[in-house]
Design a protein around this nucleic acid. Structure first.
Lengths: 217, 217
DNA sequence: TTTCGCAATAATATCTGATATTTTTTGTTA
DNA sequence: TAACAAAAAATATCAGATATTATTGCGAAA
């Protein structure tokens, strides 16, 4: 996976981003530079570089002359993000299903297999693997759209996905058997090269997840 | 418009971004920190913050341990960006046309008027106002989608639009009377609340612009 | 008690300069 | 000409200083 980055900057970037997404840095909380300095063992300049980066991605806000804070959450924001995810991911999926070659199929089969196994564990009540599950979920969705042939689209999607993920981690409840079935159906439709069906399943999948998250908020 | 920013950081950010979009910093060229220091009269730390930000937006690349360079251009990249612009802007337009209130209409009328006047000048051969024209073009498209009710969507669009703009400025040729008519038609359709028609006009507008830019490259 | 204004305190933004590492260049040798 | 080592240039990172701006707390006024 994400191998250890060689530079301090890249490493603190990943760590802070992860801490925001997984809720260890609370939405709306102030990011005091001196505190972060200790917590992430990086110099002031490096931290400022990192935070600027996160600010431009939208995980952090940087009101002028007032330092940094973790971007707050809200229902409206979540809804916007989910809708944007539907738009981007469905579009990418359509392209991908049309363009995907044998390698794409192979990766997809592998990704779904790993996801499915982990989901079975979760269904059996083994909650210890939630973070692993999230990673496989990401890899599965990533694999589905990876053949869309547009770096720009993939990077826009990746950003939105991470923002969506933060809300999911916030409520930290598992949707269970329905989600498993949805993944399976999408997977089958994609392999069958039924772009239209795959898209509508994906759209429903995201909307159901949104509903679930909104209720849990 | 964009008022003078109060901090050094914000100001150099804007200046460098503008210089990239308008081609004063050539695609693919190395951004040596010492050189930039003189050119933008900012300290090393401030510059690194700025460049990190631009890197995360995609205007600059930052290969590890090797400094920064202006993101190169390519036909494929342009095509990806244009397609993404179609996707985002058409979607935003549909929402906007459905949601727009009287204020929205007012702004739109004003924006189109200004754009139209400038386009007339350009048609008459007065090429001195190209940068102004580009600004009004931006403001017009912005006004069209401004009622979409999604900050996330607007900011994603704004990023893509700027990238698209860089390619337009690169070839620096004016498409002329057709574009004027396209703007007019879109404007009329939007005011008539004909979302479907507005969308298909916008899609054609962007695709025509893409064609034109590709030919000029 | 609430509000207003000001001093004291804390935090930022920005710059300079130093150091260890890494890249790039250059020059030499096989 | 290819390969490689030494020299030069650039980068990433840090620490510390300063001016500016935000925040806080407290006493005076309403």
């Amino acid at each position: 996976m994400a191998k250890a980055p060689s530079t301090v900057g890249a490493s603190t970037y990943q760590r802070i981003k992860k801490d925001i997404i997984f809720g260890k840095l609370e939405p709306g909380s102030k990011l005091k530079l001196d505190t972060l300095k200790d917590r992430y063992a990086a110099s002031l300049s490096t931290l400022r570089e990192t935070l600027n980066r996160l600010a431009s991605e939208g995980f952090v806000e940087a009101p002028e002359q007032r330092g940094f804070l973790v971007t707050p959450v809200s229902r409206e924001d979540l809804i916007e993000i989910a809708e944007l995810r539907v738009l981007l991911e469905c579009y990418a999926l359509e392209l991908s299903v049309r363009n995907g070659d044998t390698d794409w199929e192979g990766n997809l089969v592998a990704a779904h297999h790993k996801l499915h196994l982990t989901e079975q564990q979760l269904l059996r009540g083994d909650e210890s693997e939630k973070e692993t599950w999230k990673r496989y979920d990401w890899e599965f969705h990533q694999a589905m759209i990876s053949a869309c042939n547009s770096r720009n689209l993939l990077s826009a999607h990746s950003l939105i996905y991470d923002k969506y993920l933060r809300y999911q981690m916030l409520v930290l409840t598992y949707r269970g058997a329905e989600a498993v079935q949805e993944h399976k159906d999408m997977f089958d439709a994609a392999l069958a090269r039924d772009a239209r069906k795959a898209k509508s399943l994906l759209e429903a999948h995201i909307r159901n997840g949104l509903e679930h998250t909104l209720n849990a908020m």
